[in-house]
Design a protein around this nucleic acid. Structure first.
Lengths: 194, 194
DNA sequence: CTCTGGCTATAACGATCGTCATAGTCTACC
DNA sequence: GGTAGACTATGACGATCGTTATAGCCAGAG
């Protein structure tokens, strides 16, 4: 085989990320994910033999990589431009879904509360947040921001955007993101200036 | 009857809020909520005849009121003190649950993505966010902050704390909240000074 | 004491869940 | 052309979901 490298597997992952971002992890069944990706149910267990956890983990990582790629590219023009791209990206997801979709990474991070062990999907979410923060912090430092402040600001950006997206969905309004955007842009601009 | 006003009903709501904050709405069953509150399943439908939606709605409002009460009290000492109390409150929830609990309002806000109509629990979440923002913004304005800036900052505080709590849970570390706290305190202090 | 009505106990309803097993199809290579 | 192995089709498993129904309990009012 091999030629294939069918986008089938990737379609499932991307579709899973989308559905998780709308309804949360445990409200999204494997059957629905398969149907949404026009793949048979059997295929999901063929590609993801460890079941739902594996699929959720890959969906988180997929989203993480997708956002990180956009972030890396836009950060080349500077931290403010990177921030603006980050904001625009989430704005588009919320607007284009008519306030129904958000961030699948946050959705997974919130729904996993095991007693004994850490599920892989939760660990993946932590790594994705770290990755986004690292990209922002590195760019801030490269433009003159002090290290500690850069780290703090990067965390604030990721956290507040995640929270704001959820608030926009609840309120069915983009005003929270507008407000957060203005504050964050001023903060980032100030950090690389002084 | 009437004398009763048994705390039974309230116990169910409080327990539901706690469980939702740990596992999310759809991962929390009514049976488990009843058991957690040591109430029979029948009672749940007696007190909340509209079922899970009603219970979720009341859990959101219950949490909203509880936080708002703490916020109102501590804001009397000023915006910075109010912010600190807000941060301490969420810090305690995360730490005392060993990173397993978060904010039930956020959990509900994220898990509801209906096609046709807005579920009452989601509307309640929007109102709770609004309430928290209003309290913070009013305090900021009362201490000299310009109105627009106060509103923006209030949104940023609520959103970033919500997001940070989720990040702390995923990373199993309080570092994100430490960083966010420092940034927010500086911002609030700056806003009421100039 | 009787009776009323808030609360509980118990069982069931259809639906759907995650997961697995098994047999079948198809394609790529020898 | 035949064989291997990737993928699909189908159906079942036990469990659990939200919800409802019905019968029973038990305190307080008359």
């Amino acid at each position: 085989m091999a030629k294939s490298s069918t986008p089938s597997r990737e379609r499932i992952v991307a579709g899973a990320a989308d559905m998780i971002s709308r309804r949360g992890l445990s409200a999204t069944s494997i059957r629905e994910m398969a149907k949404h990706a026009k793949a048979p149910l059997g295929s999901t267990y063929h590609y993801f033999p460890e079941g739902k956890q594996q699929l959720a983990t890959e969906a988180v990582r997929y989203t993480g990589e997708w956002v990180a790629r956009a972030l890396r590219k836009e950060l080349e023009a500077g931290p403010v431009e990177g921030l603006r791209a980050f904001l625009a990206l989430w704005r588009a997801i919320v607007v284009e879904s008519d306030f129904r979709a958000g961030c699948p990474v946050l959705a997974v991070a919130i729904e996993e509360a095991p007693a004994d062990e850490i599920p892989p999907a939760l660990a993946a979410a932590a790594e994705v947040f770290d990755q986004w923060e690292s990209l922002l912090a590195a760019s801030l430092r490269a433009h003159g921001a002090e290290a500690e402040r850069a780290a703090q600001l990067a965390t604030l950006v990721v956290a507040s955007v995640e929270g704001t997206v959820a608030m926009c969905r609840a309120k069915r309004s983009m005003e929270p993101l507008d407000r957060t955007a203005e504050q964050l842009e001023a903060l980032v601009a100030g950090a690389i200036r002084g």
